[in-house]
């Protein structure tokens, strides 16, 4: 992956000035390349990684396994695109294995997620079955550990 993308994936707030120093290029060049990535849709957004467990909000996340009957034309695409339009669906992947689609769904409470599954998802033509797992606790999200563990410190000066 391009070094510039690596830096931004790690910290989207890194300033073009600092990135320029790290990559030995001009600040203008950095800005230009970021713009290009945005235009091409390679960079599709910038988000904060939030540990929502620490916030006092009522919200439920579920992982849902879905089996689907593939279609003669387009395979899983039509059904998947349809499902991904629901704002409740945070992520959606086509996967190999015992089921076809893996969904991460967000809702206000158990009831709203359940009704999303039974009324909206399961009723879509082509969806054969669903298995819902409610999430209990987040340990790691987007490569970031959610609990800071006690770390050994390095000596302040060493040879």
């Amino acid at each position: 992956m391009d070094e510039l993308l690596k830096i931004l994936k790690n910290n989207a707030l890194e300033s073009p000035g600092n990135i320029a120093k790290m990559l030995n290029m001009s600040e203008d060049e950095v800005r230009k390349r970021i713009k290009e990535y945005e235009k091409k849709g390679i960079i599709r957004g910038y988000q904060a990684v939030v540990n929502e467990d620490q916030l006092d909000i009522n919200r439920v996340m579920a992982v849902i396994e879905v089996t689907v009957t593939p279609e003669r034309e387009g395979g899983f695409d039509r059904v998947s695109n349809r499902i991904s339009r629901f704002p409740e669906v945070e992520s959606l992947y086509l996967v190999s294995g015992d089921y076809d689609l893996l969904l991460f769904v967000e809702g206000r409470d158990l009831k709203s997620v359940s009704s999303f599954v039974s009324e909206r998802l399961a009723t879509i033509e082509g969806v054969k079955s669903t298995v819902t797992h409610f999430m209990l606790k987040t340990y790691k999200h987007h490569g970031v550990e959610m609990e800071s563990q006690d770390e050994y410190e390095r000596l302040k000066v060493s040879p």
Binding site: L155, K156, S158, P159
Partner: peptide, 9 residues
């Protein structure tokens, strides 16, 4: 509260 650039590891 020192920021250390003195660390050889």
């Amino acid at each position: 509260d020192v920021i250390s650039l003195g660390i050889g590891e």
